[in-house]
Design a protein around this nucleic acid. Sequence first.
DNA 1: CGAACTGTTGAAAATGATCAAGGCCGGTGG
DNA 2: CCACCGGCCTTGATCATTTTCAACAGTTCG
Lengths: 246, 246
Amino acid sequence: MPDSDRLLRKIETICTLTAKEKAAVRDIPLTLREFDRGEVIIRQGDIARNCFLVVTGVTCMFKITGDGYRQISIFHFSGDMPDLHSLHLDTADVTISALRPSVLGFVTHAHLRSLSDRFPNIRSAFWRATLVDASVFREWLLNLGQRPATMRVAHLLCETVVRMKLAGLGSSVASVVPLTQQEIGDCVGLSSIHVNRCVQELRRRGLIVLRRTALEIPDWRALQKAGDFDTGYLHLTERQQRLLDN
Amino acid sequence: MPDSDRLLRKIETICTLTAKEKAAVRDIPLTLREFDRGEVIIRQGDIARNCFLVVTGVTCMFKITGDGYRQISIFHFSGDMPDLHSLHLDTADVTISALRPSVLGFVTHAHLRSLSDRFPNIRSAFWRATLVDASVFREWLLNLGQRPATMRVAHLLCETVVRMKLAGLGSSVASVVPLTQQEIGDCVGLSSIHVNRCVQELRRRGLIVLRRTALEIPDWRALQKAGDFDTGYLHLTERQQRLLDN
DNA sequence: CGAACTGTTGAAAATGATCAAGGCCGGTGG
DNA sequence: CCACCGGCCTTGATCATTTTCAACAGTTCG
């Protein structure tokens, strides 16, 4: 798949584009660069002059407390643009790094601005994408603040599986979760040791089969219930909904 | 102050408007309505056809787990538009209610759309406002996931004082925090009882003088440090920065 | 083969929740 | 004006959850 087609594919799950708009998206000049696992892409405090598209791989956004504890706030897959917000918030308030080896395509702000000036539909799709991320943050707040440990982990697994499926990776019964238990802990606010115990409880209850990063879900409904998970906050379009149901 | 001037005041701390743009903001037709403390403004699942401006009072956004626990994700003051995101995400993923008796001004989506089509600066200011909210969510995630209880409470108090000062309410040494200890708990993921103990620790350390909702801060620097608080994530403009320093 | 992660287990310690009861304060109605 | 009521704050005791520390096993990869 040509690189910018991944973006096109994503935008088209959100709205319908005219031929001209499609061409414009395809013509976005992407500067490709590979990142190793753990490599920093944007550092907190950086001033951004471009955004990037995840072509392949996974990225994650995080912040660190003064005492050095890390909280991951979201991760992004193929087709996502993790730092679209930098279009209007130029100094980064978070660090973004590659969670796995990834290929990223960089685009200048200038180019994105001209694109969104010329094509209101595309601009709306961008704005909407930042709003869906914000909705994910709100759900994670609920997860961190109010749900018990095992439920938090189950919730995270559900979200990951759904979002990966939307990005065209994995299915709803089996998937490769790109997260170590340490990283899961950094997402849900638990020590990696306790994450391990939660994972084992989920295993014991027959809700997941997780070996390293290979995840199987024998009973999706049951896992969803265990994680108090409902897709509402992902604001899926009908098209995305259909994609999921397959 | 005329009602839509509160919005104008806020937008103007973010960007500079032409006379025409100012007039357009002033001409926004607001339908005013009063809300009692605790009254629901937008219910999770509602389909929005309008947004609202906080004229006076305070609103908060929250979600509830399947087990009935509540997590507040943000609150908004005079001049804020809490559900701007509904412009692109029509079904609400959160509930918004009045934290105190409030006067709100409703505007139709149609009107806001026409406004933002005609005035790109205003549109950008709106988009930016939703992005700053998202940045606040990320910081709260860090707060909930990684900071110990007392620090969380201190952080919340710092943010509240700063944001209220920006909205023209209170000062940096004294303020009326519009939150009960129960509500603080719903923000920082703690039981109200434990919040009480944190508050007392902050008092004992001489960092705050909090009587009911009246807050005095003898040493702003020290409280900031106790809360690991840095204004960066609020993305203050220079104008806002100056407002704070007074 | 060894180094470096990642996952697993147990025990002890810390943190925060829950339960229960009482005090303070402001508002309301007699 | 006073008595009462309800919401909010406070305190103590107990309990549950989660962290930390420490050690070890399994994998992957150079």
